[in-house]
Amino acid sequence: MNNKDNFFKGIIKENPLFVSLLGMCPSLAVTTSFENALGMTMGVFFVLVLSNLLISLIMNNKKLAEMVKPVRIPVYIVVIATLVTIVEMVMHAFTPALYFSLGVFIPLIVVNCIILGRAEAFASDNKPVASLIDGAGMALGYGLAIMSISIFREFLGKGTLTIWGDLQLNLKFIFDFLKIEPIAMFVQPVGAFLTFGLILAAITAIANNHKNKLAKEVKNNG
């Protein structure tokens, strides 16, 4: 697999959220606003890219890998937990509003199955550069997924789109034009499941359509 395919597989073909359905709990909880999703994406990107790189560096050193193998899961957890703690401290210091908004879901990145999954399934068996690219693709795929959910939820639930801090798009005029109120349910937990389900259904429909088209083309050509 070349670097381009390695990067893009995490965004579309093997999207951790929409295809593998991994890391759903924090994804559904933090997507009440676009800003939260963006903050979570940055945190996960930092942790996933660096944990993949560090774990690959450790496991590509034959001598070190032999010694680490029996305790590899604790080693992964120590590395991941360290990176998450760094994210937590930096967020607390420099983006306190985001830190308080994401709350308990920042430390919970440690147990996000995407990160541990990529460490065990990819980084431990591949070269550092490939692992770094895989981490970046997966984190971006995860980020795009949660940001798309948050756009729907925040717009439908509040009629706004909070980009960062005070930078907020007020889209209530659309609701005023339609003479309806924003549907508050979408920023509640039930709205998270509903939005996620609808997006997943749309993606599955598009993927099936694409598959059918390819099958037809093969049939016609064959």
Binding site: L64, M67, V68, V71, V75, V78, V79, T85, I86, H92
Partner: peptide, 27 residues
């Protein structure tokens, strides 16, 4: 293996204390 895990833990601990040194006053 245990010693390797301990060493990695120590390195991570030192790294965290460095980050804490810079972020604690801001926090």
């Amino acid at each position: 293996s245990g010693l390797v895990l301990l060493t990695i833990g120590l390195v991570c601990g030192i790294l965290l204390s460095v980050v804490n040194y810079f972020t604690a006053p801001k926090i």
